[in-house]
């Protein structure tokens, strides 16, 4: 059921996103597609922030569906499930791998469906630059989904699903709103940029905006690095990997200590 849900959301979102390409008569390259899917309108003014809020829709939808992927075991028939589970830590690790698989599947499905639709409606071409970007797109976006879903699951275990969602989605919206403030208080152009790019890197949501990144590959760098700063994709990947490991370890501890004979945590559970 989860796989089907992943594919349905991915298909609908690809259709919505690719609708923008309809009517374009020029050749569309794979790199253009990836940039389109990775916050192509990102900037520091209200209109751009609103566009970025729309680009966050598939992220929020995935988080709403998979934010309870592990936590749900503690709500519905929790006691029956865990008295048969000898090692909860290894069970949690297995579940996190499944969650990682789903997030990869989701991002890959968005990309593949978009490519299929583009092949039918325009002259779609694959370029080398696009292949590198695809690799980073799948890794960075799926790791972001994985980490955020893991955080939601961990918070939900202690404080319930509603609080978990509100806090994680709330923090992401706060990061989004910060981009609008950057325009006024942090100069992002000209000579000030070298000093202020630290503000850009401090906002985790910048990691999802590909055109602000830099790359070791020159042709990729020329395509994306609009601010001409050093903000390598590998930095973002490394940070997300560290966060993922941290929350997996934290989750294992939480699951181990979680009381399964708890009151009804959600509707109709035990």
């Amino acid at each position: 059921m989860y796989i089907l849900l992943c594919l349905i959301i991915a298909f609908i979102w690809s259709g919505i996103k690719i609708f923008n390409f309809s009517g374009v008569e020029e050749d569309i390259y794979l790199s253009d597609l990836v940039l389109k899917l990775a916050f192509d309108n990102a900037d520091f003014f209200v209109g751009a922030v609103l566009d970025m809020a729309i680009d966050l829709i598939p992220v929020f939808l995935f988080q709403m569906v998979f934010g309870m992927y592990i936590y749900r075991h503690f709500c519905v028939t929790g006691i029956y499930f865990f008295i048969r589970c000898d090692n909860r830590k290894s069970w949690f690790l297995k579940e996190t791998f499944k969650l990682l698989g789903f997030s990869h599947l989701y991002q890959t499905a968005i990309l593949i469906f978009s490519m299929i639709i583009l092949i039918f409606i325009s002259d779609f071409k694959i370029d080398m630059c696009g292949i590198v970007l695809v690799l980073y797109y799948v890794i960075i976006y799926s790791m972001w989904l994985f980490v955020t879903c893991l955080i939601i699951n961990c918070i939900a275990l202690k404080l319930g699903s509603v609080f978990a969602y509100v806090s994680v989605i709330g923090v992401q919206i706060l990061f989004l709103g910060m981009f609008n403030i950057y325009e006024k208080y942090v100069s992002m152009d000209g000579s000030q940029l070298l000093i202020n790019d630290i503000w850009l890197k401090l906002n985790p949501l910048s990691g999802l905006v590909f055109k602000w990144h830099s790359s070791l590959f020159e042709n990729v760098n020329n395509k994306i690095n609009i601010f001409h700063i050093i903000y390598d994709f590998n930095e973002t990947v490394a940070i997300l990997c560290v966060l993922a490991i941290f929350f997996v370890v934290l989750g294992m501890e939480l699951v181990k200590r979680q009381d399964i004979i708890d009151e009804n945590r959600e509707i109709g559970g035990i």
């Binding site: 709403m64 934010g67 309870m68 749900r72 709500c75 519905v76 939900a156 319930g160 699903s161 509603v162 978990a164 969602y165 989605i169 959600e266 509707i267 109709g268 559970g269």
Partner: peptide
């Protein structure tokens, strides 16, 4: 009927 309250944000 949903088993999770958080789905009501959707």
């Amino acid at each position: 009927k949903s088993s999770m309250k958080a789905f009501l944000f959707l």
